[in-house]
Amino acid sequence: MPSILGRSMVGVVLVAFMSGCASGPNANPQDPLEPFNRDMSVFNESVDSMVLKPVATVYRDATPDLVRTGVSNFFSNLGDVWSFINAALQLRPREASENFLRVGVNTAFGLGGVLDVASEMGIERTRLDFGQTLGRWGVPSGPYLVLPIFGPSSFRDAAGFGVETQGDLIQRLDSVSTRNSLIVLRAVETRANLLRATSMLEGAALDKYSFTRDVYLRRRQSQIEDLIDLGIGVRNGSEDTQDSK
């Protein structure tokens, strides 16, 4: 499964290249693949409206808050593993040690991560992904890219996503039924957490595609600039405390 997803990311990039580029005075220079991206956004919205959103809504309404909190904590604990790795790759010792401690404490004392004991102890979480790590070391973002199902991205972030997919602990489980069940549960829980944001977006944006693209690109650029500023501060021996929390 990890290799299949990795090849899928490459396939999406190739298809996007072959789809042609947007042109005209109103074309966004960061989104030369706008025709392809808009088509992919329409596809994603169709899948979401027919499958993901209804299932996530039922899950949210039918699942007790305590259970949902445990599910969210469990997957967040797995995410902290990658955040630790990326913090180490970005030469951020404080964030790396904090995320490492979070994984150890929550796994050992929080029933495998179901309980967020680390937060109760004041150990902070810093979410970091491999796309940010690539940006931290100067890899350019490349064009905006909408991935099937997964949504807004860029060429750099799609590459980072492919790398993290290869190391996804759930994808490496031997039991096919357990692995698939956890993948589905994670997708549903993630979508359920976005239900309110989706409703606000639908009510506020005249052009949902452009709004989503611009917000995504600004947010990612801000995160990368924070990482670069932090790197400069570390090299200069300053006490820069900027991060992407």
Rank of each mutant, 00 (worst) to 15 (best):
G138S: 04
G24Q: 07
D116A: 09
P29I: 05
R179L: 03
R60Q: 09
G110Y: 02
L78M: 13
G70F: 04
G104H: 01
V234H: 06
I228S: 07
S23L: 09
S222L: 11
S8F: 13
L194R: 07
G138T: 08
L52G: 05
F155V: 09
L195A: 10
D65C: 04
V184I: 15
S175R: 12
R38N: 06
S222R: 13
V10Q: 13
V71C: 09
L115M: 14
E239F: 14
A22R: 11
D39N: 15
G113W: 02
G162F: 02
Q242T: 15
S181M: 06
R213S: 07
S72K: 03
V15K: 05
A197P: 04
G135T: 08
P148W: 02
I149N: 05
T198V: 05
V51Y: 13
I228G: 02
G11R: 11
S97D: 03
L115G: 07
I170K: 03
G233F: 00
D226W: 02
R68S: 11
V105K: 00
F155R: 02
V184D: 04
L115W: 13
F100A: 13
I232V: 15
D116V: 07
T57R: 07
L173F: 03
S72W: 01
S153F: 00
P143Y: 00
F74G: 02
V71E: 10
A62K: 08
K53Q: 14
I232K: 09
E120S: 13
S154G: 06
W82S: 08
S83F: 03
A192W: 00
I85Y: 03
T69M: 05
S3A: 15
T190H: 15
E98A: 07
S175H: 14
D39W: 15
P29H: 07
I85K: 06
R186D: 11
G131V: 09
C21S: 10
A118W: 00
A56G: 00
I4T: 15
Q223S: 09
V215Q: 13
V42P: 00
L206C: 08
I4P: 01
G6S: 14
N26H: 13
F36M: 09
R172N: 15
S199F: 08
L195H: 05
Q132Y: 03
G110P: 00
V51H: 09
G20D: 02
T212S: 12
T107S: 12
G122L: 03
G113C: 02
L147H: 04
T178C: 04
L134F: 05
V117R: 01
R38Y: 07
G162H: 03
N28K: 13
A158K: 00
P2S: 15
I4Q: 12
A158S: 15
G112Y: 05
P93L: 12
P2W: 14
L169R: 11
S154W: 01
R218P: 02
V103T: 05
G79P: 03
T57V: 05
D214F: 01
L66M: 10
K245P: 01
A108H: 06
L115P: 00
L169E: 06
L195S: 02
A96V: 00
R196P: 00
P143I: 06
Q223D: 10
T212A: 12
G20F: 03
G233S: 12
V47I: 15
F100V: 07
R220E: 03
L52D: 03
D226L: 08
R156P: 00
V105W: 01
A27M: 08
